[in-house]
């Protein structure tokens, strides 16, 4: 079993280095007996794949997947740079 102290690091590296994920912007937090994944990705498919990979690699860990999809609407304001 994964040593608890390495768990966040192992999940973080899995999410970055696994070809089907390649996400560097996911935060991994341990909360009591849970691991909470948070951040934003570009599609629901990517969010689902993250949860699937983490759950299958760490079946003994309770995972909460709190990952959103970044909005992509047009802006309504302009910022003047001076």
């Amino acid at each position: 079993m994964t040593k608890q102290i390495d768990l966040e690091a192992e999940i973080q590296r899995l999410l970055t280095e696994h070809d089907s994920v390649a996400e560097q912007g996911i935060t991994v937090h341990r909360r009591e007996n849970q691991v909470v994944l948070s951040g934003e990705v570009e599609s629901g498919q990517r969010r689902d794949e993250i949860c699937r990979q983490v759950t299958s690699h760490f079946p003994e860990i309770e995972i909460t997947c709190d990952i959103g999809i970044t909005r992509a609407q047009a802006p309504s304001e302009v910022e003047e740079i001076s």
Partner: peptide, 23 residues
Amino acid sequence: AHPVIKQAYNVYQLLSESVDAEL
């Protein structure tokens, strides 16, 4: 970065003659 601006793109105005925050 897209997760920072949380919209498709930001718009910045340079060389302004007047300021209008409405896009």
